[in-house]
Design a binder for these strands. Structure first.
Lengths: 252, 252
DNA sequence: CGACACATTGACCAGACTCAAAGCTAGTGG
DNA sequence: CCACTAGCTTTGAGTCTGGTCAATGTGTCG
């Protein structure tokens, strides 16, 4: 792994994790305290670099504090499939606690600030607080639910519907961690990234985006997505947020 | 749920579960004993009927003892996406232990014999044996890994490659539970089912299957798949079995 | 200011879809 | 044991969504 500057302390990192987990299930005071005590190595990473790779056997989990990351797989002839995008609060490789060899890559999209948490410490924590283990399990299950919904988009939605669906999902995920509001959020990915996530070509993504703009569904300028017609977007995407398992929570 | 005959006892059901879990991680004698003690209601279900539905809040998990099941979601205009097929030993709704409202349907494909296990009993069991909880967690993570690989197929593999990939996966899963061998296994699904799983139309699936037959890659007759050229099938599918997390195990 | 990455557009192509018509085949009932 | 039927499979002809190739804008950063 290539880190840019050397690690810097970040007293807010455990808070980020606590907020994330409380968005999944309420935590007891003891559990919160246990999380506060987790050792975390903070790193600042450049955009577009791998964090862990296919085949790696990581010894840490990676909590995103700032910026966007993605998981992807590569095929022959440079074909890439982006499996998911990840935003602050996410632990994209939480599964590595149980599945020791990674079967895909995790990379930054933008510059990213991450906290690395040793598996060992997480293991001790969940041994002490079994209900935290359930929360972690739940997080990976929500992750799986997102994959299932994306499968539906890939298989049975048109490019237009699929892109609309992705925007609904990304907006709600960003809103849930307080990084979006008023139908506006940062979207720091290129059209090529979108294409690789959607299973389309960049050219076609571009055309569909133009069509969405023409229909005043969205505006997309300087890495900012503005949803101009939320209800209509939901409708064309046949979007049902159940699968995201979003609980009511305090504004972040 | 519509059960055909009334429940019948099946002393082999716990054995099926034990074998399944030992394919994920070794079990201690105490754990095996705990599983033997699980209450299981056995039912025989007809083909093509829902077991649990989108929105349900099940109180039992469902262990498949015999036959095939599938999970699917429906969209408007009768569009259906099959998320996964399930074979004996699978617990397709294990996640319902943690995610209480189902976001998809689970249905039989063929006639199915299932064992329903109360969440309550599973909860007690994992409280007593925390390492069993980890095994269950691991099982759902493997499930998620299968979704990720399917996402790659959907997004970046041609219909031909995608179908080849599905056959590789199904064959290995069947082999792992002793239901396949010698490059031959039962495949009790229609071309329409395949189409809904692959995100294609039945007509196109048919044409691709013909092409595979013409290339002597496979034979598919009376619900039996014969893989005539395994290495070649692996090659065209760019199949890498890592994601299935298959451990060496005794022949079933 | 220049370079490079990204976005946009056009012309043409191909893989997959639609609609429609036969052919099979396993199960059912007589 | 055979004829019938319903559901599945197969095939053809024509269409369309999304892909390919290539050129031209546009914006951002050093």
């Amino acid at each position: 792994m290539n880190f840019v500057p050397s690690p810097v302390p970040d007293p807010q990192a455990p808070g980020m994790l606590i907020r994330k987990l409380e968005s999944i299930a309420p935590l007891s005071a003891g559990e919160r305290q246990g999380i506060e005590g987790l050792p975390m190595r903070i790193h600042n990473l450049n955009a577009r670099q791998d964090i862990v790779r296919d085949g790696d056997q990581p010894t840490h989990c990676c909590l995103i504090l700032d910026g966007w990351a993605c998981r992807y797989k590569l095929l022959s002839e440079g074909k890439r499939q982006i499996l998911s995008f990840h935003i602050p609060g996410d632990i994209p490789d939480l599964q590595s606690l149980q599945i020791h060899r990674l079967d895909h890559n995790l990379a930054t999209v933008t510059k990213v600030r991450v906290a690395f948490i040793p598996h060992e410490s997480l293991g001790e924590l969940t041994a002490k607080h079994p209900s935290l283990a359930a929360v972690f399990w739940r997080d990976t299950l929500i992750d799986a639910g997102i994959f299932r919904e994306r499968l539906v988009s890939m298989g049975r939605r048109s490019a237009f519907e699929h892109i609309a669906h992705m925007f609904c999902e990304l907006y709600l995920k960003m809103q849930a961690v307080g990084l979006a509001g008023n139908f506006r959020c940062s979207l720091p990915i290129t059209q090529a990234d979108m294409a690789d996530a959607l299973g389309l070509t960049p050219v076609h993504v571009n055309r569909v985006l133009k069509e969405m703009r023409d229909q005043t569904l969205i505006t997309l300028r300087s890495s900012t997505l503005v949803i101009e017609a939320w209800d209509e977007l939901l409708r064309v995407a046949e979007f049902d947020a159940t699968y995201l398992q979003l609980r009511k929570r305090a504004a972040g």
